[in-house]
């Protein structure tokens, strides 16, 4: 099977950035031990916009936490550039859904320099300042560099978080439903801006969402997970679809196909 695009060319063996194989993740509540994902496999390559999609309870956020190193798998391995992931580190920067991910006691610029200096990306304050300004410009927040986060709107806060993550130039950027708490118009704008940033720098991103539309727009490849516990249902391509295709037949068909995959589980569950 070969890709459908006209200028495609078969590539020789390359190593994935992130290699997740047979990963089972469990966590404990006060009373119970919950299995969140069961033997999940996937590979993320350089410059992928890899989306983890599934209904709530499919363990997609848990999986992202596992990749970030906040949780250890009970079986299977997760390798970043061939090294087993064992703890959190600045080579996998996470952007969260919650607005409180910015440090409220630091200004927009300080939030980014904080990351650069502590994450070991920069050793001098001047260098960190320069890089911070570069990324603040990328997300168009020059006017707010010295503002404290509580003065910013939700969309602006997420932009700062994205700028902070990208400034680290991590091997892979992890995004946990970063636009879920935004209003519809802001969300659409942020999606466009994210894709524009990707066009500029071609960073690798692992993106979690529960919106099928967002998955198709943002993703180049979509991993669909089934719920209770999370297992791989399918891996689909969406690299050729973006905002400009919304409403087109191909876009609608893919959306419908994904919808059916997720919906099929729901019906089974309801019957059970």
């Amino acid at each position: 099977m070969v890709g459908t695009a006209a200028n495609s060319a078969t590539v020789p063996d390359i190593d994935p950035i992130l290699d997740v194989s047979g990963v089972t993740l469990q966590y404990k509540t006060k009373e119970h031990l919950i299995t969140a994902t069961y033997r999940v496999d996937f590979k993320v390559f350089q410059s992928d916009r890899f989306v983890l999609l599934g209904p709530s309870g499919c363990g997609k956020s848990t999986l992202l936490k596992g990749v970030a190193g906040f949780m250890k798998p009970v079986e299977g391995t997760m390798k970043l550039k061939g090294n087993v992931i064992s703890r959190p580190g600045p080579d996998r920067v996470m952007v969260f859904q919650e607005f409180d991910q910015l440090l409220p006691w630091k200004t927009v610029k300080q939030n980014i320099t904080f990351a650069l200096l502590n994450g070991g990306k920069c050793s001098s304050r001047g260098e960190a300042d320069d890089i911070a300004m570069e990324y603040i410009r990328k997300v168009k927040l020059e006017r707010f560099e010295n503002t404290y986060p509580h003065m910013l709107s939700g969309g602006m806060k997420q932009r700062v978080a994205i700028a902070r993550g990208m400034a680290m130039e991590p091997d892979i950027l992890l995004m946990d439903e970063p636009f879920a708490a935004l209003d519809a118009l802001t969300r659409r704008q942020m999606q466009e801006e994210l894709l524009q940033l990707w066009e500029d720098t071609k960073f690798t991103v692992l993106f979690v969402t529960h919106s099928i539309e967002e998955a198709v727009i943002i993703g180049s490849r979509i991993l669909i997970l089934s719920p209770h516990p999370g297992q791989v249902k399918a891996e689909l391509n969406a690299h050729h679809l973006g905002h400009e295709n919304v409403g087109e037949t191909e876009f609608m068909a893919l959306q419908e196909r994904i919808h059916k995959m997720i919906f099929a589980d729901r019906v089974l569950e309801d019957e059970a």
């Binding site: 099977m1 070969v2 890709g3 459908t4 695009a5 200028n7 495609s8 060319a9 078969t10 590539v11 390359i14 390559f45 350089q46 410059s47 992928d48 071609k202 180049s220 490849r221 891996e235 391509n237 690299h239």
Partner: peptide, 11 residues
């Protein structure tokens, strides 16, 4: 069986 479309790897 992966192929390259610009910079996106297609699998």
């Amino acid at each position: 069986s992966a192929s390259q479309d610009g910079t996106t790897l297609i699998r």
